[in-house]
Simulated scan of single mutants.
Amino acid sequence: MARVHPFQTNFTAGELTPKLAGQVDFKKYNNGVEEMQNMTVFPQGGATRRYGSRFVAEVKDSSKSTRIIPFEFNITQSYILELGDQYIRFYKDNGQITNTPKTITGITQANPAVVTVSSHGYSNGDDVWINSVVGMTQVNGRRFRIANVTTNTFELQGVNSTGYTAYASAGTAADVFEIASPFTESQLYEIAFTQSADVMYLVHEDVAPRKLSRTGHTSWTMTEVDFKRGPYLDQNTTSTTMTPSGTSGSVTITASSSTFVATDVGRLIKFNSGHAKITNFSSATQVTATTTDNFSGTGGTADWSLGTFTSTKGFPKSVSFFEQRLIFAGTTTFPQTIKAAGYADNSNGTRVMSLAFSSPNPNL
């Protein structure tokens, strides 16, 4: 009897567990396979060989862990972010983003090679790409770490150019574009992130939430998220009162009993119809704060609340967008609590409201 091989045109169910073998009544059975290696399935149903990879550049320090994450504004403005030990580098269009190239006027045939670039502004340890050199073409299209920097020259670390063709003319040098980051090597793979247009939010339970903004290929900034009106812990239920020295600007807040700790710097506090951010710790009963919404008066009150996100209580380790709201969740002290931002406030300092609720899911 001839063997029959069915013609399969759809693979969108992917690989099926062996436990489903022979389960022809399973809806996805006819769109699944037993094993699929090095293939990419299209949403339309077909499949093709997976795309290959290409070496673009070495990370800043190969001896340390590094993480790459996507940043996609649209199909023509997509980036790869290299997150390393307290830095971020950027890639686009199969290349590493650099600062504006500067003109090379000379490269020596020496060990190490010395490059002349007038008033380059580089520093020891910078990574520099060299291109378009006439004569000494062996250096073109390569990235070098530089050392022994002077005002107009720098050495190519570890490069012996004595056997290279003599430099004739032209050429450019461009240092790698990089910004500072608060995240250390040990924290990289615990960072959660979410993106909306040109803004990405990154969180880690030991670091205050960060906002990464893009305004151009070489114009990226990372700032601490500026919470203005929350989120807050539950309202005080003790007899302790808070008294401000003024109603606006920089004020001294005095508690009637020990309340504050040194890690409260940067924490929000609200009472007397106002909001403020603590800027200095003086003692367990006194701090300095800057108002974000003025207090209604200078009288003492037991009706106050302290901010949720702080080194004292921990920071969120999950972040996402849901129906135009920016959502934070999972602090160290309150792992099942979710905080939601007010509508349309996400890009303007992030006025996160105390719309908190507890979830029965411990993973949130």
Score class of each variant (00 low, 15 high):
E205D: 15
T218D: 13
T263W: 02
Q235C: 06
K277M: 10
Q286K: 14
P231M: 05
V225N: 08
N294A: 12
W220M: 09
S258Q: 10
S273Q: 11
T247W: 05
S239I: 03
A197Y: 11
I253E: 07
P231V: 04
K277A: 09
Q286A: 12
V261C: 03
T243E: 14
G249C: 00
S296Y: 11
I191A: 09
A208V: 07
V261A: 10
A284M: 02
D206W: 05
K270L: 05
K228M: 12
V199A: 12
N236F: 02
T290D: 15
N236K: 02
D264K: 00
S245G: 12
R214D: 05
F193D: 08
V199R: 15
T241G: 06
A289Q: 08
K270H: 11
N236M: 00
S283E: 02
A197P: 04
R229A: 14
K228L: 14
F281T: 04
T291F: 08
Q286F: 05
V261P: 01
Y201D: 06
T254I: 07
G266Y: 03
N272A: 11
M242T: 00
T285C: 06
D226F: 10
F260Q: 04
L212P: 11
R267E: 13
W220A: 10
T288R: 06
T237D: 15
V261Y: 12
D293Q: 15
T223S: 13
